[in-house]
Amino acid sequence: MNKEQLFEAIGEVDDSLVEQASVKQSRKGRIFHFRPAAWVAAAACCLVVGTAILGLPKKGMGATSADTASNATASSTQEAGGAGPEYAMDMVTEDAAPGAAVMDGSAQNSTAKLAEVTTQKVIYTAELEMESTQYEETLAQLLAKVEEMGGYQESSTQGGSLEYGTRWYNASFRIPSDRYEEFLSSAQGVGNVTWLSQDSQDVTLEYVDLEARISSLETQRQRLDELAAQAETVEDLIYIQGQLSSLEYQLESYGSQMRVLENQVSMSTVTVRLSEVATITPVTNSFASRVSDAFTRGWTGFLDGIQGLILGIISVWPVLLLAAVLVVVIITIRKKRINKNSK
């Protein structure tokens, strides 16, 4: 078997499995798992890491340290359930939509018509990653901004842990294109931005091409309508009707492609990932700020460590109680023995 055959074989897996994989799953229930050993280990790790950070020189850019931090915490966080599984496939559909609008060949009309188009048709997309210490406040501000710009939320996922302060929110927003820039700049104001990527795709050519096809088909339809009115035999009429129905089909298909394209152009897509952090990734690189940053991180790390340790100790209380009882029992037995010996 070669790799292509294996790929083909994977295609033959059960329909139900494929269907399941098109729905986002939530991993509920795991949040209630209570494993003292893991807690103690986690607390110890926190303490060690917290104290280690104190002495470590800061390296790399802000974004990198934020990434490693989120990776490190992710293994100990639990998902609080994904929002809206029904959006799962819709997102993919939207992504692929520009592809559906592009057709091959017959571009000779387009170039001539391109000059007539006054506005460029551009699809804007952006990805934004930010962090905040006031998670709930920032999230509310962000959603308010979307509302204010007349946009809407297409899909969202949230998760993380309130206890450890590592909640995150992943969402894709659709914003009216004329307010896209305004939204991006105001959204950057609500949190500390660690990553921003913008993309624009010029689809003017495709748009004009579609327009040209539709108008040419409509002319044809008009002509056929006239012919149908003049038709003398039933055979002619049936033939013309057949032609007409295939024209209608093409018109409908181009029309739907056009609508998809228009939707993409009029509403730009902004993907935002907001994460809760204890300390904001620094944006300046001067020695003084790095020193103060090291102090802050050291202190928060230390506090985290202490909290973890206390929680760890509390979480093994049955063991401690048992140990205390044992100690008391042993001491009483020893005292009795000493008393006997002295008698």
């Binding site: 078997m1 055959q5 294996l6 790929f7 083909e8 074989a9 994977i10 295609g11 033959e12 897996v13 059960d14 499995l17 494929v18 399941q20 994989a21 799953q25 991993r27």
Partner: peptide, 28 residues
């Protein structure tokens, strides 16, 4: 392909849901 596909299905059914979804998102 069908037989191998069935074997892969049996294997995936025994997998952790996240691993299964990841596998199918990537390779299906």
């Amino acid at each position: 392909a069908k037989e191998t596909g069935a074997a892969i299905s049996r294997f995936l059914e025994g997998c952790d849901p996240t691993a299964r979804t990841l596998f199918l998102r990537r390779y299906w």
